[in-house]
């Protein structure tokens, strides 16, 4: 009977805590995986980008229907904002409500808020790769 080589993917229980923590607390996944240096750089970068976005009075996206382009922008932006984890939840909970306004500073602020979430997504993927043994 021929033996078949089965490549088993690591179970979700192995990597999920690190990825969820990486989402909720930027850099937290790396701290859990005992990579504090990298976690600190990632956490501080995401935090500062998010804070700069707030200080530039960026807008937080809300899901909005309508034509396809509007849906892509608003749902995409909302997901991007949401990826910043606790920074997003705290900001909403504390009542930050900046309306969409004209001006390059507000516009940059909005982009910075989404960019913070996207940078955190990269950190989450990195935490997943470390937790599953794909990298050190």
């Amino acid at each position: 009977m021929a033996e078949t080589l089965k490549l088993q993917a690591p179970s979700a229980g192995h990597w999920a805590p690190a990825v969820v923590l990486a989402w909720l607390i930027p850099g937290g996944g790396h701290f859990l995986l005992k990579r504090p240096g990298r976690g600190a750089v990632l956490g501080i970068s995401v935090l500062l980008v998010f804070l700069l976005g707030l200080m530039m009075r960026g807008m937080l996206f809300q899901p909005q229907g309508g034509d396809l382009l509007t849906m892509v922008i608003y749902y995409g932006g909302f997901i991007g904002d949401l990826l910043a984890g606790i920074l997003y939840f705290l900001t909403v909970w504390l009542g930050y409500a900046q309306p969409d306004m004209a001006g390059h500073v507000h516009d940059y602020g909005t982009k910075f808020l989404v960019a913070a979430g996207l940078l955190n997504l990269l950190a989450m993927v990195d935490a997943w790769e470390i937790a599953t043994g794909k990298k050190d």
Partner: peptide, 30 residues
Amino acid sequence: KGLTVPKMNLSHFEASLLFALFTSAVLGVI
């Protein structure tokens, strides 16, 4: 008014520079 944070007015160049700095740091790490 909800949450109020200090306001910052950055030029295009300053905002681009800060974005480049933090994005480069994250890309380098990961």
